[in-house]
Write a protein that binds this DNA or RNA. Structure first.
Lengths: 331, 331
DNA sequence: CGCCCGAATGCAATCGATTGCAACTACATT
DNA sequence: AATGTAGTTGCAATCGATTGCATTCGGGCG
């Protein structure tokens, strides 16, 4: 910047202000400086700027994705969400720092925020009511979480209306004449718990009994869906429909059913969740509850930026959409 | 840091050295300083440090993924690669900056490197011999590319042995008695071009003719695979096997075939590429050429760091592995 | 003619960590 | 006692952009 100042015959202060389109600077001077800067391919040193301003213009995305419970990193869901976050961050003039392999969360504040690597955090993967997120919140750190709004947790979330989605999925199966509807998912996870509440609610509204044994703990993965389906095939299925809390699970289940000669939807109807890009391409295609992930990513970024600007925000619950395809058996 | 210095009764210089485990400092002093720093939850300001050292300890990953040619961001491939890169970067003590929506590449050097946002670049998505990468190389920027080694391009790559993979896929079909093997893919893309060369080579070795009309330009997406398959269904297929340059394409093709009553592998055998996590879960499961993406991500990071350290590197071509499943018809 | 005012620009301090070089201590050697 | 030495520690400059405050300049007006 000193060079540019010399070349333009002005002070560094003037250069700095010119490049920022400060109204303090005479237009002619400003244009001249900008011209010279361009000619000499000068770029402001972001490190120096960040240092001086005590801001990084960077958001950190932390994928608290616990491989244990089968949420494979390859999940299309994550990639779409991440892509959407990246696009929106760029749009808003922020850089994005990515971490998939976090040091434990207690350190997130220290590592990213106190160390001035990022201005705020976006947490993907709420986990099973992770207490570490509460600690982050207690520290007053600016962050936002993808997931379900959970009472007694003082951080803000963006997520889908999982209760309504679970309700819709179940009612759809009921409307199609199914009486014994199983639920596959891990209800220790807040979002899944909400879907399960919707499921129970829909059963109750339809006058159908809720049976513990039809609720089968299943992690996020296709392979676990496959496992659980395998047991049904062996034992003989005890249901005529399944609500899977993710399309991935549904995919695993259907694969196993295909091998075991169980027809979908004739023998067992299936509804998934997410509207995974693959749901269309499986055979039969999967009826599912669509989450608007792209919008979700956008809102995560926008709301985090609001927090950074000191504005108040609130939880966001986005509506889901029922996408009817083949696996549920008719409309 | 000044506070810590005061509390410890030493100078800032000593604090700085102590925290870095400098051998210059007396062990007792060092431990005392570290203890005080810990107690007061002091973290070095990364922004200041980066500024002073003119290093960011950050790698930028740029997904030059052109949505036009159908490489959907949701691709499992990308997410696995990205996850692997992130893990290895963390392992090596680097942060990761992510960009999916790049300003045009000519600016990448300016934006990321000259502006001191990152020390080096990892480019995913070589595109169709993107001339912009050459410009980056001419500028002497430290970067590395996932993809195929292309002659006359002076940047280094990490990628799979696409020629051998294409050869293996095709030979496998030949061994299974297939005579008219179609190729689905976009050969303007360097990696796909190599797979196509392997395909031609295998045909030649088997004494089979190479026919232009069996090479069907197809982009990366499932939907384009579906489209191209639709045409075959309508026109009546002119082949008894297909080598798809990605499992995604294969998935789209198989979906359409299922609808059109074409049996896989009986009527038409299929081999894919990548070993997409889904390949196992489709029906039939997809025989495919596996790329070791996780290793690839690791090598990208390791090699980039070598470049940053001034070490010489070379192209990396990783072996592929043939994974036999159902879609190819027997072994 | 002198004073005041606004517009434009420059001066200089500042952010926090790092590091070359100087300085200081304690003890050993001659 | 004077000099040397190794081991520790401190001083002070430095990185590059930003910005509050001072300064300069050119008019306009009484």
């Amino acid at each position: 910047m000193a060079d540019i100042a010399r070349l333009a015959g002005v002070s560094e202060a003037t250069v700095s202000r010119s490049l920022k389109d400060s109204p303090l600077i005479n237009e002619k001077t400003r244009l001249k400086v900008q011209e010279i800067a361009r000619e000499h391919n000068y770029k402001v040193n972001a490190a120096a700027r960040n240092f001086r301003l005590k801001k990084t213009h960077t958001l950190a995305v932390v994928l608290l994705v616990d491989r244990e419970w089968g949420h494979e990193v390859s999940d299309a869901f994550l990639m779409v969400l991440l892509g959407s976050i990246a696009d929106e961050a760029a749009h808003q003039g922020y850089d994005l720092l990515l971490s998939t392999n976090p040091h434990d969360v207690a350190d997130l504040n220290a590592y990213y925020l106190e160390s001035m690597r990022a201005d705020g955090l976006i947490i993907i993967g709420q986990g099973r009511n992770d207490p570490r997120l509460d600690r982050l919140a207690d520290a007053g750190a600016p962050f936002i979480v993808w997931g379900a709004e959970v009472e007694d947790h003082n951080y803000f979330t963006v997520g889908s209306d999982n209760r309504q989605g679970g309700y819709d999925a179940t009612s759809l199966l009921v409307r199609n004449g199914r009486k014994r509807i199983a639920f596959l998912g891990d209800i220790r996870h807040p979002e899944m718990e909400h879907r399960w509440e919707g499921y129970r609610h829909a059963l109750a509204d339809a006058g159908l009994p809720y049976e513990e044994k039809l609720v089968i703990p299943t992690d996020f993965s296709r392979s676990d869906g496959y496992e659980k389906a395998a047991r049904m095939v062996v034992d003989g299925p005890d249901c005529d429909a399944i609500f899977c809390v993710s399309d991935n699970i549904a995919l695993g289940v259907m694969k196993r059913f295909a091998e075991g000669g169980i027809r979908v939807p004739e023998d067992i109807a299936i509804v998934g969740f997410d509207d995974n890009p693959l749901a269309v391409f499986s055979t039969p295609s999967i009826t599912t509850i669509k989450q608007d992930i792209r919008e979700g990513g956008k809102l995560l970024v926008q709301n985090l930026i609001k927090v950074l600007n000191g504005e108040k925000i609130d939880h966001v619950t986005m509506p889901t959409e029922t996408i009817i395809r083949q696996s549920c058996g008719a409309a």
